[in-house]
Design a protein around this nucleic acid. Structure first.
Length: 393
DNA sequence: AAGCCGGGGAC
DNA sequence: GTCCCAGGCTT
């Protein structure tokens, strides 16, 4: 098979396969550009099965460009809770506001217009233009690069910008006349369901007769991809502070700064420490250097890390003292690994917690009542910690 | 070009 | 547990 035959075979067979086999997904039931847009932003970061319930809830609450443009940001963030990459939710709303104001609520169909929107890069602009408007633009994501690198044996590192540009040129050539939307979705669907990262299902592949990678037995070793750096470890102490008196049953939470990691999300107060305190459980408390048991109350060894947590909150105007360690938790981001120890903290006498809480330190503190949880967006790791605390106390 | 941004699934 | 999955933005 020469290269032109290989290309024609690929486009024809893949399109036919998709039209027979494609999955029934909520955002495929219409060509509503707003639905396509929302789904593409969600799908950038998460698998289809995870996205479906989020998409349904999101569209249910914000059915139109106008509804999302006019919504409070906290509501948008709350519906995004658990999906990750929260800046994308904010970028999406900012872009939707611009469409509402500058384009009268109509998602632009010109490449230059749509590409200028926040959070819309080369992939997303191509996806919206092809799927919603059937324009012959490539939509090259990781699936597409994997499929093309195997089928045509492209050995360039797919992490490089230049490789993506090359793939876009190729993908655009392959689009069959008048079928951009279906073909681009076919490419991604093949990558997601057949031409999988590991152990691809070549036996059921609609284009395996033309696949150069398969021919040479290289389907498992393509694409070439430089390994990512491992996440750097960070040790963190977390304070679980329960109110007393009027504040009984409430937990002290805070909102993160406007920018950076987990921007504007709510969390339990915590601080990074160089070294975590040693693990001490039950009987070995007696043997811990510098520790003693006075009656029922464990007096902890002087510990620089715990003092750091206390000092951090003292700087915020919050007078607490770490007590016993409740649990450990871990959370891995792309570039950071959090190793966390959660301490129940005692409110120091002289501070009731009813005083004005710090609002701009840059954290914004609040006493959270259990029934208020649905109003605040938390990263999953803190939801897990709070749930376990509620379940075991 | 490299780092910053979460969270889940397969095995 | 250990491996994998990445698009857009900022520097």
């Amino acid at each position: 098979m020469n290269i032109d035959e290989r290309k024609t075979y690929f486009s024809t067979e893949l399109l036919a396969w998709y039209r027979r086999h494609h999955r029934d997904l909520p955002w495929r039931r219409s060509r509503n550009p707003y639905y396509i847009w929302v789904s593409e932003i969600m799908l950038q970061q998460t698998r289809v099965d995870t996205v479906i319930p989020y998409f349904e809830r999101f569209i249910g609450r914000f059915p139109t460009v106008e509804a999302l443009a006019l919504a409070p940001e906290e509501d948008v963030l709350k519906l995004w809770e658990g999906l990750g990459y929260y800046s994308r939710a904010r970028n999406l709303q900012a872009a939707v506001k611009e469409v509402h104001e500058r384009y009268d609520g109509v998602v632009p169909s010109e490449k230059t217009d749509i590409s200028s929107l926040k959070g819309v890069g080369p992939y997303t602009s191509g996806a919206i233009l092809s799927i919603a408007y059937n324009k012959p633009e490539p939509a090259v994501d990781g699936n597409v690069m994997r499929v093309l690198s195997r089928y045509f044996i492209i050995e360039e590192d797919i992490m490089k910008i230049s490789t993506r540009t090359l793939m876009e040129k190729l993908a655009k050539e392959l689009i069959p006349e008048g079928a951009a939307g279906d073909f681009n979705q076919a490419l991604m669907e093949l990558g997601a369901t057949v031409c999988t990262p590991r152990s691809p299902y070549c036996l059921t592949c609609p284009v395996r007769e033309g696949c150069a990678g398969r021919e040479e037995g290289r389907e498992e070793t393509l694409p070439v991809k430089k390994k990512a750096k491992p996440p750097r470890p960070e040790k963190r102490l977390v304070a679980l502070i329960e109110g007393t008196g009027e504040l009984a049953g409430r937990i002290l939470i805070r909102q993160r700064p406007q920018e950076g990691l987990l921007a504007r999300m709510w969390e339990l107060p915590h601080v990074e420490v160089d070294k975590l305190p040693p693990v001490h459980t039950g009987e070995d408390v007696h043997n811990m250097e510098g520790s003693a048991i006075l009656g029922e109350r464990i007096v902890l060894a002087p510990n620089a890390a715990l003092e750091r947590l206390e000092a951090h909150l003292a700087e915020e105007g919050i007078a607490i003292e770490p007590q016993e360690r409740l649990m450990d938790a871990e959370h891995t981001f792309s570039h950071i690994h959090w190793e966390m120890q959660v301490y129940r903290c005692r409110i120091k006498s002289g501070w009731s917690g009813k005083e004005q809480l710090p609002q701009l330190t840059p954290y914004h503190y609040r006493w959270l009542a259990p029934d208020e949880l649905p109003q605040y967006a938390f990263p999953n790791v803190f939801l897990r910690i709070m749930k376990q605390y509620r379940d075991t106390r």
